[in-house]
């Protein structure tokens, strides 16, 4: 149990002298521990991935070599920790190009494979690598499978990354992928494919992006793409209305992988008001939206925007009066802030007492 805590300290170094000691004395211990774990096949995947994260953060060649070895062996390739590990390899990281090049011929599966594609896209975008490692027939077959996967939530991030990689692929090879991406059932993939189409010189996809701006469920992604392409003026005026922006905010929150993973099928404004909000100690506009998923067991709920965007899934429903929902969110935010006014247990009564005291 102490090991993860100790590893965490390798990521919390705030002075040069301590960093020197950690790299001279600490990292070699972790290299040896990693090598030993591999040689005797006593693999605790959680510990190993935490060690790899430390290696990635410290940016040494010895560490990067071990990350490459673990990736080639496909150790725990489904774990989301691989995203965290490879995210460290940005354009500032001294081993990014080494890592990308050393893994270019390895078939990487699961989260690991997707994270590798995302890294390759990023490094290709800034010109850190000249040839995209997915510009091969074998990798194109893998990307085609990701785009065609019917279980779209499982491979949504992969499909988005494939769509983003298209400007860096040989055009003949990428043509079929582009057609698949533009026709993908997820608008998130279609938007990314539209951006790639534009970057490849076909400006006709611009109107597709503008159209998605007007749908609050995908507006945030479409607007970000327009900004990325330098077309801020193309955002329709109605998309800047506070109610619309608040709806888009909640849709983005609900779309996070650890929430529903996609925006709701329906979303409606339930209430909006200006009130003194105790958790932030200021006067602000807040919104409540009821949302619905057609195919989900829990079918829907209520979300709040204006302070901390979130939905207390399972606690609030659209049957509750708006004041009760605000009361529960108020309790929740105060608890998360460690505020001395926070009640021990969340309840409508405790929240209402707090909100009413200031309003």
């Amino acid at each position: 149990a102490a090991f993860p805590v100790l590893l965490g300290l390798f990521e919390s170094i705030v002075c040069k002298e301590a960093m020197h000691v950690m790299q001279e004395q600490g990292l070699p211990l972790l290299y040896a521990a990693f090598d030993h774990a591999l040689s005797c096949e006593r693999l605790d995947a959680d510990d190993l991935l935490l060690i790899l994260k430390v290696f990635a953060i410290h940016g040494t060649r010895d560490g990067a070599e071990r990350i490459v070895r673990a990736a080639q062996l496909g150790i725990a390739s489904q774990r989301t920790m691989w995203s965290v590990i490879l995210e460290q390899f940005d354009e500032e990281h001294p081993q990014s190009v080494f890592m990308i090049n050393r893994l270019k011929d390895s078939l990487l599966l699961g989260t690991l494979g997707i994270a590798y594609l995302q890294r390759a896209n990023r490094l290709a975008a800034v010109g850190a690598i000249q040839r995209h490692p997915f510009d091969t027939d074998a990798r194109c077959r893998q990307m085609t499978a990701w785009l065609r996967d019917a279980d779209h939530l499982r491979h949504l991030q992969a499909a988005i990354a494939v769509a983003a990689s298209l400007p860096y692929l040989d055009q003949t090879r990428g043509r079929d992928l582009l057609a698949l991406a533009l026709d993908h059932h997820s608008p998130c993939v279609q938007i990314e494919a539209a951006v790639s189409t534009i970057r490849l010189g076909n400006l006709s996809a611009r109107k597709l992006l503008i159209r998605w701006c007007s749908d609050p469920r995908y507006s945030r992604i479409a607007m970000r793409s327009l900004r990325f392409l330098g077309w801020v003026d193309a955002v329709p005026a109605g998309c800047c209305h506070p109610d619309f922006l608040a709806t888009a905010d909640l849709c983005q929150w609900l779309s996070q992988p650890n929430e529903y993973g996609r925006p709701p099928d329906r979303i409606e404004l339930m209430d909006t008001r200006v009130l003194y909000w105790p958790p932030t100690d200021d006067l602000r506009q807040v919104w409540l939206f009821s949302y619905h998923y057609d195919d989900h067991e829990c079918s829907g709920g209520v979300g709040m925007v204006g302070s901390v965007t979130c939905s207390l899934i399972g606690e609030t429903t659209s049957d509750l009066p708006a004041a009760d929902v605000y009361a529960l969110h108020c309790c929740c935010e105060l608890q998360n802030n460690g505020d001395r006014r926070a009640p021990r247990y969340r309840s409508v009564k405790a929240g209402k007492t707090l909100v009413d005291r200031y309003n």
């Binding site: 102490a2 090991f3 100790l6 300290l9 390798f10 919390s12 170094i13 705030v14 002075c15 002298e17 301590a18 960093m19 020197h20 000691v21 950690m22 004395q25 600490g26 211990l29 972790l30 040896a32 521990a33």
Partner: peptide, 20 residues
């Protein structure tokens, strides 16, 4: 946070003991 070389040394020694 690890803010001195001494603290870093203690952590490394602890890791060494733990891994041994």
């Amino acid at each position: 946070n690890v803010s001195t070389a001494e603290e870093a040394t203690i952590i490394c020694d602890t890791v060494a003991v733990l891994l041994a």
